[in-house]
Amino acid sequence: MSTSPEHGLPCGRDSLSVWENARNDTHDQHEATCPYCQGVYEQFRILAIASDPYLAQAITAPTSLIATVMRTVLTELRPGRPLPIPSDAGPAFITDTALAAALRAALDTDPAVITHRCRIDTVDVPETARSAPNTPTQQPTPLAVQLSVAVSYEHYTRHGESVVRTRVIDTGRNLFAQQIDTVDIEIIDVFSTEVNR
């Protein structure tokens, strides 16, 4: 019996669907008795039998695969912009990507908030208010932080944003002497803390 795989069968079914149904053992009464559909079954029966052991062959990624990739990734880290850290002992800087990682880490101790993105921009200040660059007492650049977060719907309160904002500002100030002027928070998802327990 000819059953072109790219055309419908004389009975009106298409051979691809018949094959899928046979594979998933979801064939209906028609396919169980139709000679055209049975022809497809017979044509592909041996392929179904062969596919199981072929696809079950153990192919395990070598342990060096990820390590090799990460060695390259770490040499290509996006440097980020340097933000001055006030210091009496000479110039010190933290990159905005490192500061963002620190802020995310601080929020990661809170089981009711999951930080997605954390972007840091500098706030324009008047020329007259700037200190000379690379001086021992350089002032921190005022920063604006943009957060996208998911929050627990069981534990989110109308004070939640304020608490998150305070933690971000405190972390920037206490760890790296950064002046975070604004923290914009976008809640992009909610989740159940109960499910995660």
């Binding site: 990507t97 101790t109 809170d110 089981p111 954390c118 933690r167």
Partner: peptide, 26 residues
Amino acid sequence: IGSPTATRRVLTDLGEAVLVARARDG
């Protein structure tokens, strides 16, 4: 919210969307 625990969230517990967002941030 605002009640930090001593344990930081484990990265491997995070969903794909969160991991992708953070990876995009570098």
